[in-house]
């Protein structure tokens, strides 16, 4: 069983919801990422979504755009991200890791080469924002061959017909983008999300994660009532930015790990309450 499938099965048994934090690898420097991943697990993260920096992140709001820019100052490449995952796996062989990013770095590496390297490093799932199933003819088989779950997005504009198409190719979980917009948007209507989730549930048995616009423990808890997983990104990356600007690298990294752990702990408690 894949780590992701196992993770959701375990959570379901314990009647719990998954907390999935997103951070961009290498933001604000490559030194922090592995430590931050471990700290997030200790604070209650069930799955880690690791952003692969890209020069042109067109689905991301300003917060995650800047995260990519900071990581790219150090030249954090897809190869570097895989090395980080590998180092994380040295002491954690349980927590699933999902890479989230854009197609071009994978395209340049080659789908097969990437999938093999990602599997070797201990990656479990891949969410590529700009590859819909219609374009994924050779991408999906490459991921499957190396036991990686292709994670796909569903959005408020996705028709039921498209949901069926997408869920046919997805495994692990599907990711529902809760708002029309980019990452870090503030307005999330929990009633509306619950309505859409009911439709998604008619289409698939896969667990559903909800993201884009989850900023507080309250929203996380509200969304957690209807979905199997809650994804939180920009709210965490904001903390990275704040500390990177105001403190030296070492102090900033320590403070960021502390701040993010605090936010995740409160979200964990709210989700479990």
């Amino acid at each position: 069983m894949s780590r992701i499938k196992g993770c959701f099965a375990q959570l379901k048994k314990n009647n719990k919801k998954a907390l999935i934090p997103y951070v961009a690898a290498g933001d604000p420097n490559p030194e922090i990422t592995m430590d931050l991943m471990h700290a997030m697990v200790e604070s209650g993260a069930d799955i880690i979504e690791l952003g692969v920096p890209f020069s042109d992140p067109m689905a991301d709001g300003p917060v995650i755009q800047k995260a990519s820019e900071r990581a790219l100052i150090y030249g954090t490449s897809l190869t570097d991200v895989l090395a980080i995952v590998k180092s994380f796996r040295a002491t954690n062989n349980i927590t699933p890791v999902v890479l989230m990013g854009y197609l071009n770095p994978i395209e340049v590496m080659g789908y097969e080469t990437f999938a093999k390297a990602a599997n070797d490093a201990g990656v479990d799932g891949v969410l590529t924002v700009d590859i819909p199933p219609e374009e994924a003819g050779t991408y999906i088989p490459a991921l499957r061959e190396f036991e990686l779950d292709p994670i796909f997005l569903l959005s408020p504009t996705t028709t039921k017909e498209r949901m069926q198409l997408i869920c046919q190719y997805a495994s692990g979980f599907v990711y529902y983008v809760s708002v029309k917009g980019v990452t870090g948007t503030s307005a999330l209507d929990t009633d509306e999300v619950a309505k859409r989730l009911a439709i998604i549930k008619e289409v698939t048995d896969l667990p559903v994660g909800v993201g884009f616009g989850i900023k507080s423990a309250e929203t996380a808890a509200a969304v957690g009532k209807a979905a199997e997983a809650v994804v939180v990104g920009s709210a965490l990356v904001n903390l990275v930015e704040k500390n990177a600007h105001s403190l030296s690298q070492d102090e900033g990294n320590k403070k960021t790990i502390k701040d993010i752990s605090q936010v995740l702990s409160s979200m964990r408690s709210a989700l479990d309450a």
């Binding site: 924002v129 700009d130 819909p132 219609e134 374009e135 504009t157 028709t159 997408i166």
Partner: peptide, 20 residues
Amino acid sequence: EKGHFGQYGGMFVPETLMEP
């Protein structure tokens, strides 16, 4: 019909844009 010129073109966009 899917916008391909040989291997080029296509629709490589986030899901939210597919329907529009």
